[in-house]
Design a protein around this nucleic acid. Structure first.
Lengths: 336, 336
DNA sequence: TACCCTTGCTTCATCGATTGAGCAAGCCCC
DNA sequence: GGGGCTTGCTCAATCGATGAAGCAAGGGTA
């Protein structure tokens, strides 16, 4: 390596007095199958070590029509849940001897498609897609390229998908909140449980809303779905404004609040900043998401923690199974 | 693409009735230089589109001895600051037409080295390393491979590095906390300002401690450095225990607390959970790190926010400049 | 007519590793 | 001593894209 150039199997071959193919076999472990003698292999390895050789993975990948890269596309990392997903994804990729290539593609469908195509162009061995805006288009691109793919968080109707069990998670949280509250009565809207935040047209939110409806309905606590379910979007300030409007109508905080997502919850906490301890204590809070500071607030908070670890593990299992058709797996989240 | 195989420039060439090199030139934009006629190029592009062609980046990378990959190594993503770093890194890589390959390598030096070598084996065009445990070894590997590299968060003495200005950031936070507190007196340890958390042997913490010492010293508020500076590590439970011990000694919360890192702050908040409002109100809190929930706590908190965006931008600037020798740039953090 | 220049392509080597096919030497056995 | 087997390697094609060099046809010029 004094030459300043990376050494290749040809350099090693020359110095060891063998052919490049012998070097290749010695280095990648196929030497027994190729009947190289142990002494030759040791000589080669010795030279390789002294030359500080490292294989060119692009060349290998080109030859083998694979790359050893594991691709993941996700909107961003600011979200704790996505950060956890990517962390788990990378850990498992690593355990499989793959190199994780993680691309932040935002929420724009075209941008996500370009990211997936770019990963495909690198001949990634698999693709995991989180929070897809237009799942079918991405699935199509992967299918065309014969790349194993799986969706997480936001499912795809035409490909293997692994998501949190939003329905039962929401139902469970709802049940818990209702059991923590005084039994609501039809005539007293301030005593009801409200659902706040999220976008009803997205799968995750819609499932959570279904769970909320079903459970609240079963408990006789759903009096006016229109009023009780306020899917005002995911931005914190929208949630803040929505809650402010609600309090204005009710004359006080409602008895129970099911907040959909940690982002919305930030808005809620901001709003609560202006209220008295007593006013806050009269409300039971739940959030469908997790943040370590959630347990450290001045009021009790039930949180649903999505199991990024289990979701990613199951997603890899789907990839292993080679499934490419539609298949939706739901992973139960934890209630804290 | 009905064949089920990815099409190559050879396929396109055949269908367009030209040579593969003409296809290559047409597709990568060098056709004018190569004097292809516009009509031929258009025919080629038409065929390529209909074949749904996409270039094999491994082949291109092999030929050109580069990959179009931008590599980043970092310990993990659970930390908000690292998450932001990776986010900014990916955004800028993207803007440059590079594909970000982000590897979580943990804190283990050997593991980090393997990750860097792996990226090098993919012929990444640049490497950004955050939170390196053994910077010189990683720098060595990059230098040997002639790969542009830069360190962030944890600097390297032998390579370009960009870090937060921990010294002045800590000094500023210290000054602010002292101005928010009643002037401490030598005889009353409970009235002093304390520094909690971090590892004194790490560059970031040691700089922050220097900043704290200097500022507290200048303000005449450093009475017993040994007692006032408690770099008990980064884990939240260590900080919790340390604070508990301190309160035990003092008989109450100190008048001021400079918490080094958000993780430690979690421990602090946990401890505060057992105290009364009044006890907490008597203490002035600051944290060298940022979390959106920090502003939502029941007591005021000054936070120092590290500018991941500026750090990454400067790091890319160092890469562009082609510097490979030692060079340490400090980026001033924000005080909130 | 001979020469040069431009235009518009093609040919072929190349990047580095892999791998099926093949070859030479040595040994065994009848 | 000839056929067959094993051992231990080498040869050469291959993956797909690139680009330097070259070539043929046509136009212009002397």
């Amino acid at each position: 390596m004094k030459t300043g150039q990376k050494s290749t199997i040809h350099d090693i071959a020359r110095k060891a007095g063998v052919s490049p193919s012998a070097v290749s076999a010695a280095l990648n472990g196929s030497w027994e199958k190729r009947r190289l003698s142990r002494t030759t292999v040791e000589r080669i390895l010795e030279v390789a070590r002294s030359e500080n050789y490292s294989v060119n993975l692009q060349a290998r990948g080109l030859r083998q029509a694979r790359s050893g890269l594991a691709g993941m596309v996700l909107p961003d990392h600011e979200n704790r849940y996505f950060a956890e997903l990517s962390q788990c994804f990378a850990a498992e990729a690593h355990a499989r001897g793959l190199c994780p290539a993680i691309v932040h593609a935002g929420r724009d469908a075209a941008e996500q498609l370009r990211s997936v195509e770019s990963l495909i162009a690198y001949a990634v061995d698999l693709v995991m897609i989180a929070g897809a805006s237009d799942p079918p288009a991405l699935a199509q691109a992967c299918r065309d390229a014969h790349v194993a793919h799986v969706f997480v968080d936001h499912p795809c109707a035409e490909a293997p998908s692994v998501v949190s069990d939003n329905l039962s998670g929401a139902a469970e949280l709802t049940r818990r909140l209702l059991s923590d509250m005084a039994p609501p009565e039809a005539g007293d809207p301030a005593g009801w449980l409200y659902f706040l935040g999220g976008a009803a047209h997205l799968p995750a939110s819609s499932e959570r809303i279904r769970g909320f409806r079903a459970e609240a309905g079963a408990a006789g606590a759903l009096f006016d779905a229109e009023a009780q379910i306020r899917a005002c979007g995911y931005e914190s300030h929208r949630a803040e404004a929505e809650l402010a409007a609600l309090c204005d109508r009710l004359g006080r905080l409602p008895a129970g609040l099911f907040v959909n997502s940690i982002g919305c919850f930030e808005g809620v906490v901001r709003f609560l900043g202006g209220l008295s301890e007593d006013a806050i204590a009269a409300c039971t809070f739940g959030c469908f998401d997790y943040d370590p500071f959630g347990t450290l607030l001045r009021f009790p908070l039930r949180m649903v923690r999505q199991r990024a670890d289990l979701i990613v593990a199951e997603a890899y299992r789907q990839l292993d199974a080679g499934a490419s058709g539609p298949r939706l797996v739901r992973i139960a989240p934890d209630l804290l």
